[in-house]
């Protein structure tokens, strides 16, 4: 029994270690994008938790707050797919073009959010 838990713990450690070493090899620009996505999703989760406590009264504000986070996270994930060198599907798309798309979409998203917020 004790032997098997020790084995499971070892397995989990080994798994995390291999994940960590694999992720260390990720290019820096993709890591920045990941950080941004984590930030956006975390903000969205905080708002959902807040809404669960105070109720859904200014529902439009809640929606715009959460959707701005979710929307920008989705756009960032799209950017990550397009600038990833290992992704052969977008090898013809220059990363500058991908970033410009990302910025434009974010501007449109935040324009809508600002109109829906109040």
């Amino acid at each position: 029994m004790g032997k098997s838990t020790a084995t499971t713990k070892d397995d989990a450690q080994a798994l995390f270690r291999s994940l960590h070493s694999a992720y260390s090899a990720t290019p820096t620009n993709l890591k920045i994008i990941d950080l941004y996505v984590v930030f956006a999703v975390f903000t969205a989760l905080i708002q959902v938790g807040y809404m669960a406590i105070v109720g859904s009264f200014p529902f439009n504000s809640f929606l715009s707050g959460v959707l701005s986070c979710v929307g920008t996270a989705v756009l960032a994930v799209c950017l990550r797919i397009q600038v990833n060198k290992e992704n052969k599907e977008f090898k013809d798309l220059p990363p500058e073009r991908a970033f410009a798309d990302f910025v434009l979409c974010n501007l449109v998203l935040h324009l809508v959010i600002m109109n829906f917020l109040g």
Partner: peptide, 16 residues
């Protein structure tokens, strides 16, 4: 009540 939502929207913009 909606101040956290406003804050979240603006912090997302700043984050962007």
């Amino acid at each position: 009540t909606a101040f956290p939502y406003y804050g979240a929207s603006f912090s997302t913009m700043a984050g962007f």
